[in-house]
Structure formats: C-alpha cells, structure tokens
Amino acid sequence: MTPLERYLKNLSKLLPADQREDILRELSEDIQSEMDDKQSELGHPLTEGEQLQILRRRGNPLQVAAGYTNNKGTLAFGPQLIGPVLFPFYTRVLRFNLGLTFVIVGAIFAALSLSGQPIRTGDLFSNVLLQLFVQLAAVTIIFVFVEKHLSGQPHDWHAKEFEKTLKTSIRERIDKKIQLQMREVSRFDSISVLTASGVALLWIQSLWAKPFLIFGPVAAQITFAPVWHQVYVPIVFIMLATIVRACINLAQPNWVRFRDVAALVLDAAALVVVYILMFGHTWVVPIDASSSAAQQVASFVNKWIAAVLWASAVISLFQGIKDFIRLYKNWRWKGSTTS
C-alpha cells in the first residue's frame, strides 16, 4: 500500500458516508497533482519519504476530515472539553456503550424474571440509572483525556522534526525509517483500546464494590465465589497493562513490535485467567447456604456464567491466534525491509 493509499484509507473512515467517495476522489486527485509537480521539480520519481512529506504537510486525517463534517457539536462546561473532531466518535462510543449496557441489564432482568425471581420496578430503574451515570462519566473522562492529548499533537504530523531529520541524515537511512513508520499503530486503534479498557476497568471495579450492579435484586442472595478473589488482581493487572500499552502506542505509534508482543502476552494472560475460572466450576455461591431459593438462583446464574466463560475462551483463543499471525507477518515484513 502506498503512503497516499494509506492516508486516504485513514481519512475514509472519518468522512461523512454520503460524500466519502466524492471527497476521496477529489483529494486523491489533488494530492496526485501535487506529487506530479514535485516529481517534475525534482526530476526523479518521488521516494516514499518525499511522498510522506507531502502528506504530512496536509495534516492529520482527523483534522482534515473535520472540515467536511456537518457535525459541529462539542462538549463544553465553560472551556471546551471535547471538540468537533472527536465529538461524533464520543457520541458513537456512548451510544454503543449505553446500548450494550441496556441489553446486558435487560438480559439479566429477563433471565431473573424467567427464573421466577420477583423484580421490583424501583430496582430496575435505579440499576439502569446508575449504569447510565457510570458509563457516561467513564466515556466522557476518557474522551476528555484523548482530546487533551490530541490537541497537544502537532497539526502537521511533526513536519518540522521530519524536515530537520531530512536535512541532517543520509537519504537511504531516512527512507528505511519512514518505511518502518509506515507500519505504525493507528491512533484510532490505540484510542479505541484505551476507551474500551478504561470503561471495562471502571465497570469491574464498580462490580466488585457493588455486586448488585450485575446481580440486580438477587445480590442479597448470592455473592462471588472464592475463585474470583484469585483472578481479580490478575484481571485488573491485565486491563491496566492494556491501558499502558495503548497509551505508549498513542505516544509512539511506530512501536509496532512492542504492540504485537504486548498484545500476545496479554492474550496469553487472559487465556490463563479464563482457564482458572473455567475450572473453578462454581462462580457464585448463595450468601445463606440453607436457603433453597438462594441455591436455586446460584445454580441458575452459574449455568449462565459457564456459557459466557466458554464463549470467552473461544474469543480469547481466536484473538491470540490473530495476534500471533500479525506478529509473525510484521516480523517477516521488517526482516524483508532491513535485509
């Protein structure tokens, strides 16, 4: 993939769908014209470095796309917290998270209702409201940090640093460096991972402190089994490590091998956690062991958790294989460019 194709691909994800093709066609033509002019001026086909220099001058795709979006919404309490560039993504993530939360809460309450547990409207309402507040706060805080980080980034992809390097280094060495940078971790990937892991971490912390968030009204009857105490710290550690990994890649997008190796290690750690959990056999226990109603609820919830754990094991394994293939491909690609 050429630098221009990669730039347009990044841009295409951010453009309004109804105008995407037209805008890309026009921008592609404009960039190509500039590259042709530069080629005539230099008298040789442009190197990847020279192409990249033209693209960097045009600015981050995030900023370029903002010019075309009709959505000029922002979030501000006094000073602006989330600008027009990130705002559509903020609302998208918020909609997705809230939708998912409603589905999960709805499924839990439906399952409890089907198992014959009495459900009070007040419980349902307070549970939904609390989830809403937690999700809204978590997603907003994460996006405010991302906005702060991105607004600190130079508008033109470090064009000054790039030019300085260009003047002081040997061309071949720069081209190799640029080629390596071409395989960089997308900032959107890092932001998505950061957001998802941050929300998941807050969610787990909240669940641990307030089990009724997931158990609803039956939290008075059942509690987490001891196996969760074994895996709680490793789970938090895996999430924190994922957040740290995403932060590092946000600051250093060209640390591709670091991303690949870290992702694989974290996949392995997640699989170990799922393995320990699966062989725990019991994941919730009745608070009052003599209560037959509580035992019935615990048995019902355990069946559900078993199914969820099997699904998690399959997903974790699939993710591990995917990350291993990516590491192998990038390793081979780097080998072929350095030899």
């Binding site: 805008i23 026009e26 921008l27 404009d30 045009r58 600015g59 900023q63 370029v64 010019g67 075309y68």
Partner: peptide
C-alpha cells in the same frame, strides 16, 4: 489556502 479549508 490550505486544502483542508479550500475543498470544504
């Protein structure tokens, strides 16, 4: 004029 301003 920047491209990001002109085309929009």
């Amino acid at each position: 004029i920047e491209e990001g301003t002109l085309y929009p």
